[in-house]
Every structure is written in C-alpha cells, then in structure tokens.
Amino acid sequence: MLNQKQAVLLERPAKTNDVLPSAPVKIQDTDTKTVGQVTVDKPIMTTRNVDVYYDDKQAIRNVSIDIAYNEVLSMIGPSGCGKSTFLRCLNRMNDTIESARVTGSIELEGHDIYDKKTDVVTLRARVGMVFQKPNPFPKSVYENVAYGPRIHGLARNQSELDEIVETSLRRAGLWDEVKDRLREPGTGLSGGQQQRLCIARCIAVNPDVILMDEPCSALDPIATARIEELIDELRQNYSIVIVTHSMQQAARVSQRTAYFHLGDLIEVGETSIIFTNPQHKLTEDYLTGRFG
C-alpha cells in the first residue's frame, strides 16, 4: 500500500533524498518535560523543540513528538492548551496568521517543512487537513472532491478524475449515499455527510498525513460514530493526527495519545497505557476530571 501511494506522490519522490540529507535530529534535552514515548522507530513526521508565538505571546513551548506511519495519534487537553495550534503547524496553516511565528524543526520524511525550499502547496497536499466545522465548497459534491486532483494535476483525463472521485468517496464511506447526487451542491448534505465529504476531498489528493481538528465537535453522536469508524479504516493507508476534546473519542480511535497543558506537551504514550496508567500528575488530574 505504501509503495502504491508513493508512486503518486506529488513531489518528485525519487529525488527527495538528494535535496536534503535526512540527518537524525536529536532532541535538545535542555528542558523537555514530556514524559512517555515521544519517539517512534520509523516516523513519517518528526517535530523537535517547536515553539509557537503569537506576537510576543508564546502559545506552544518546546514540543517534540514523532508521528508514525499508519497510526492515529490523538491530541487531548483542556481548551486553550495549544493542541490546535500545534496541529496547524504540521501543514503550515499557521502561515495564514500574520502574527504567528514558529521555531524549532518539523520534518516530513526527513525534509524540514519550514525550509525555504519547501513549497507550502506541495506540503499541504501531502499533509491534508479536516476542520472542526465541515466546510465543503459551495459547489457540487463532485467538484468538491475533484478540486484537489485538479489543482495538483493528479488526473490525466476525465475518466481518471471520475475514478479518483469515486474511490475517494468510497473510502470516505459516502459513495452509496451521494452517487446519485454528485451534481448537487455539497452544502446541501447533512452535517455528518458534509464532514465525510471533506474527508473524501482530503484523501482525493492521496496525502501521507491527515490532520483532523476536532472533526466531530459539530456533529451528532450517530454521525460521530460513523466518522470514528472511518478514521479507523483510513489508518490502513494514512497517518492521522486528531485533535479532540473528547477523551472517549481519543480512547476509541487512537493508538497513541498526547496530552497538552497550557502550551506544554506533558505526556505521550500508547493510548491504552495513558488512559489506565498516566505517569504525569497533570495527565492524571485531567483524565480523572479534576479540570477540563
């Protein structure tokens, strides 16, 4: 699966290693307070000592964490803890906020994504994003899914494009519901369908990593359950980083969980371990409901 995916990578995959040698990056162990399993064996993304500032206010302090292939990493923590901010660093969506400044290193398969030579467009095609509120474009269902392949030139002709659209919709579990209304506006679907449409739109460009920013917070429990199933299926092909305010959701969908607190990454670990046996006092307090 991995090989097939890499064949359609947008950036010249063969040459990637010539541009920047991937040297192993050491965590500067100055004041990393994070406990637990920060690194993994073969990471797809690594972040080291990431700080984020809005003007002079520091929103993220010294966060280092790896993201593995084919895993769902969930990020939890009280609101305002910086988990969304951190997520948005991973595909440089923070670039759109003028006052935001990111330091440290974030690498995707060994390439610094904040490097001048990295085209942010290519990066975002490889690291897709699904937002809190479903935001389908006010165009037809088909156009929503076809948009990404179009701008990235992924289809040579109409039939290839049709195929990509169908595959993506199938993978997002939406095909059967919308196959007869591909030409109708995507904004006319129900909330849960809209969010799955956004996921289909995202996987249509075949990214390596999918970032999800509280994807179920605007949905009812039934729609949420469908999305959670979907996330589990998608893990076969993609790495997924999901920010959620629901601990149960994190427990249900993720293999690893990271706990953020006031801009610090407090603890990372296998989900089952974190929820049963947290090592850090703050994690424990949060999980047991002392604050939220």
């Binding site: 739109r201 995202c202 460009v205």
Partner: peptide, 17 residues
C-alpha cells in the same frame, strides 16, 4: 467565510488558487 479559505488552503491550494 474564512472556513472556505481554510478548506482550500488545507487541500494544498496556493493562496492565489
């Protein structure tokens, strides 16, 4: 709405696109 902009950027559209 900004959500449309975010959606497009999140897909890897350039700002101009």
């Amino acid at each position: 709405p900004p959500s449309i902009r975010e959606g497009a950027l999140g897909m890897g559209a350039s700002q101009m696109q």
